[in-house]
Design a protein around this nucleic acid. Structure first.
Lengths: 329, 329
DNA sequence: ATGAAAGCGCTAACAT
DNA sequence: ATGTTAGCGCTTTCAT
């Protein structure tokens, strides 16, 4: 910029005025400055600009579990769209469910002075964000809460959704229903388990603990869990799967077995309607979750200092066939 | 930082030393500084640091078509992983196939002085990046080339892959094979069409132009195209779909029709193996593409000033059933 | 209409 | 071991 000023034979401030389209520059001078800019290929450094202005960085951060997971990639796009609408750029990072990585990412983003941060919190302490919060960085939790962190939080109706799935199966006459959830340290997994238990109990169905399996979905473990659930003396006649990854893995395992239990999956997924037995699901709305989280973030950044709120996004049961199978005994 | 120095009763540089773990500070002083940091909740501003150091921003940008598309979300994760391994943060943005948006995103990223930029170029002029390139920003194109831009480029073997798909169908005895591709202004769509034509011609099969449809996959248009291809006088007995989105849309349309042409899809997708007729695909490797693009980017950033190179990632035919159907006439 | 000087938060280069 | 000065690239403030 100094060079531009020198070449154009004007002062630094005049170049600044031209670059920013400020008034108070004669046409003649502006032309000279533009020529110098072209010639020197000058490109303004927004970092320096931001520093001096002391203003917002117009940059928000998103920390989630896995950018490639369909649920989170849809959420990301929604966040990105809102950010774009507000003129902000988006820094993204995957925690891979590792608290250390999450923390490193979030603090890196803060060190770059993002205006706001959307986090899908892992199961860990989040007090490391207290200072950032105090310093005025807006934070919103999506998909899961961060206990002890006073921030807006957007969740799905996990218990309600799971209960809806179970109720649907109960209505088809099932009494022995299994639940295959993700690892129990994942908030949504445990919530959905609670919804399952609630609905079973409310219907007077005692839950045999052999019908419950909570683990990171991996083919081998899932296969064993299925075998256990489908074995005598009290085999399940229906299954509720705790998330999209689990549903897909279970479908794959079931394809290799004779048993055809009724099945409801938590999370919708592409092609669920085209499978041999179309899959009934409790659908979430990842785009709505991302959109709301982002809008809350920008609302906070705009200054509303109200109490942190918690939002629940409704789920929707989509009956496609697999959940309408009657009990086999 | 000034405040920290004042509170600790030391000089600015001493605080800097402590914050950066530089040697040459007595334990006693360090303790005082740390106390002041805690007390004032000081957090270093990396933006200012970077400005002063004049060093890399340790930040790279990724501009692609749609963050929520499975192909690109897998690519993104791979890029993110490489970036993380190199200690860089990742700015992401979706162009939505709009050249104006792509340009705005890319230039925004450059204004923030990203060290490098990975772009999935839309069909438009990319000379707007010339200045950035000249200024030393590393750029890599992924999935598609940007004609006229002298940068490393990572592509899939689009022609070869499409030809492989056609050859596979020819081997099953098909002679009338249709191609359903994306909009012709998309590089990959046109390349794959070329591969289809090449293989058909090489086999001595004249392509009836009614067997070719190139458009953004939308159910209505796709349905009409299918009806046309499947109608007399020379109905196709097999189909090659030009990308994942198209394949899924075609499967959905076919499900509502009696005809069961053989089908090969370009791009693998989850659950392809669990459909009633498992889908044969020419699989791409989006993670490999993202990884390579990112590694090339960091290699460029490290200084290798060699000629820009072009890389082709191999495709792999996965036979699952739909592509092994014999001709129906 | 234009420019000089000061300073955003930090660090490099030199003091002491 | 510690502090001082200058300056990264820009904008703000206040002159002219």
């Amino acid at each position: 910029m100094k060079d531009v000023a020198a070449l154009a034979g004007v002062g630094l401030k005049t170049v600044s005025r031209v670059v920013n389209g400020e008034p108070g520059v004669s046409e003649e001078t502006a032309r000279k400055v533009h020529a110098a800019i072209e010639h020197l290929r000058f490109r303004r450094n927004d970092g320096a600009r931001l520093l001096r202005q002391g203003s917002r960085t117009r940059c928000v951060g998103l920390v989630l579990e896995d950018l490639a997971d369909p649920f989170y990639s849809q959420l990301s796009r929604a966040v990105e769209e809102v950010a774009r609408a507000h003129g902000s750029l988006l820094l993204t990072g995957s925690s891979a469910e590792d608290p250390v990585r999450e923390r490193a990412l979030a603090l890196d983003f803060c060190a770059r002075r993002v205006d706001g941060l959307i986090i899908v919190p892992t199961a860990a302490d989040h007090s490391y964000l207290d200072d950032e919060l105090a310093a005025g960085t807006a934070v919103v939790c999506a998909d899961r809460p961060a206990p002890g962190l006073a921030v807006d939080t957007v969740l799905a109706d996990n218990r309600g959704g799971a209960a809806t799935g179970v109720d649907h199966l109960l209505r088809q006459g099932h009494r022995r229903i299994g639940f295959l959830g993700d690892a129990p340290d994942i908030y949504t997994a445990t919530e959905r388990l609670a919804g399952y238990r609630r609905a079973m109990t409310a219907a007077g169905c005692a839950v045999d603990e052999r019908w419950v399996a909570m683990a990171t979905p991996d083919p081998l473990a899932l296969g064993r869990a299925l075998d256990r659930m489908l074995a005598a003396p009290a085999p399940v006649t229906a299954l509720l799967c705790g998330n999209g990854r689990t549903t897909v893995a279970v479908l794959r395992e079931l394809a290799a077995r004779p048993a055809r239990p009724a099945l409801v999956g938590f999370d919708d997924f592409e092609l669920a309607d085209l499978l041999p037995l179309p899959v009934t699901v409790v659908a979430q709305d990842p785009a709505a979750m991302g959109r709301l989280a982002a809008e809350l973030l920008f609302r906070r950044m705009a200054g509303g200092g109200a109490e942190p709120q918690r939002f629940e996004i409704a789920t929707r049961l989509i009956a496609r066939g697999s959940g309408e199978l009657p009990p086999t005994d």
